[in-house]
């Protein structure tokens, strides 16, 4: 099993509903977020192109954050989901330094926190909160090993890219272009 997400940059309108849904679902402290919107504006008027991306931890296949963690607090569970065990984390910040996507932050309580793909929801057979709430249905989630999953189908039919592939982390958030 290999969980992954595809983000349709053509359908995303940048409404930030995914950001708010995540903050509510996961009790993210004020001023912090586990997912965020990036807006890329290319060209100049009248030939302007805008790309909107809902970004989060890439749950990388080759995850430097897990490798550099001195305590094993950062770890990978079934399906390739990268998680942090709060009461094993010493807050050394190594994993924050190691993430090319700056997807991690230091929670005010001291441990490191980030997107979990809503692991607690996956266990119940539900989709991540951001996927569920997106009004344009531009987030596709599922198992890459299952050819009939939403994410597999989306990746089959569209062109896609990943962010900073040169960082070598094998990211698992795909952006449909």
């Amino acid at each position: 099993m290999r969980y992954a997400m595809a983000v349709d940059t053509k359908k995303c309108v940048g409404c930030s509903d995914c950001v708010v849904a995540c903050q509510t679902e996961n009790n993210v402290p004020n001023g912090y977020c586990r997912d965020w919107i990036v807006e890329v504006v290319a060209g100049s008027y009248p030939n302007v192109e805008i790309e909107l991306r809902s970004e989060r931890c890439n749950h990388c296949d080759n995850s430097p954050c897990v490798r550099c963690c001195p305590t094993g607090a950062s770890h990978i569970v079934e399906g390739g989901v990268v998680l942090v065990t709060h009461n094993e984390c010493i807050g050394c910040g190594a994993c924050i330094q190691s993430c090319p996507y700056d997807a991690r932050y230091s929670h005010p309580e001291g441990y490191v926190d980030k997107c979990t793909f809503c692991h607690h929801r996956l266990e119940k057979g539900q989709q991540p909160a951001c996927v569920e709430v997106c009004p344009t249905n531009c987030l596709y989630f599922g198992d890459l090993d299952d050819p009939n999953s939403d994410v597999s189908k989306a990746l089959r039919n569209r062109k896609w890219k990943v962010l900073a592939p040169e960082a070598g982390t094998k990211p698992q958030i795909y952006f449909l272009t």
Partner: peptide, 10 residues
Amino acid sequence: ELFVSGRDIP
């Protein structure tokens, strides 16, 4: 040009 909105994490 790039804008990251909704992010100002300490």
